[in-house]
Amino acid sequence: MTHFPLTSTLKSSPGTLGRSVLVAIYRKPTVFLGALLILAALAAALFAPYLAPYDPEAFAVGPVLSAPQPGYWFGTDEFGRDMVSRIIWGARETLLVGLLAVSISLGFGLTFGLLAAYLGGWIEKLFMRMLDVLFSFTEILIALACVAILGPSLINATIAVGIAGIPVYGRMTYSLVLVERNKPYIESCRAMGAGHVRIILRHLIPNITPSLIVVGTIGISTAILAASGLSFLGLGAQPPSSEWGAVLAGARDYFSTAPWLLLFPGLAITLVVLGFNLLGDGVRQMLDPKQNK
């Protein structure tokens, strides 16, 4: 589920998206914070080997179940693994999972939604009925069914979350294209003699792209939450992975004796998700013709 449903196509003046991102970051402290959080997570993911003090999966690099202390700022777990290193390496898996899942959802959703809305006829009707059915299934059930079929692992959980998101992005694209297709400028293109391919590639896609990018940005946060949720249940990343949901699952057994194990991975997920939400929502507000008049 996207937490920020788009009710109309975002304002699409040329170059608006890039400029709006910058303007939003500059003007709104919340968006600035969001961008900062994402940058921090990206840096951790890219430079994990250089930033992490220890091997995230190496046992007994420090004392067992030690509270945060100099040298082990986030404490250590039951195997004496350094939590700072695990969180830094975990950023890599967490971000990758989010990006990959959204790419799957967006790729298929865009194709289906675009074709259904533009071609119309029985394809559109079939698509709409399929969406109705899939929406009553709910994303969670679809994801669980996929994991049940494929078996628990991080990559399977990612695929499952990606597949579960296809109807959401499909419907989003569909309604965006529908709004856009009925605008007079598309009719004037037809009157001019432009063909379908030209209209789709030169006019439709450029005009819905900003909306889709914003939706996709926010979607990354939803995907991260869903995938880490599966890992937390033991249906995604398996030990000794340092994916944050899996780390949290391991910490669950020690939550009365070593609460710091619980604190840091949860905080890491929250902050990254918050980053994508703040950035996406801030840019959406700048571009939404209904929100700022």
Binding site: S12, S13, P14, P184, Y185, S188, C189, R202, H203
Partner: peptide, 9 residues
């Protein structure tokens, strides 16, 4: 306004 593509020169 509506008959011109907003993103094209």
């Amino acid at each position: 306004y509506a008959t011109l593509d907003p993103r094209m020169r």
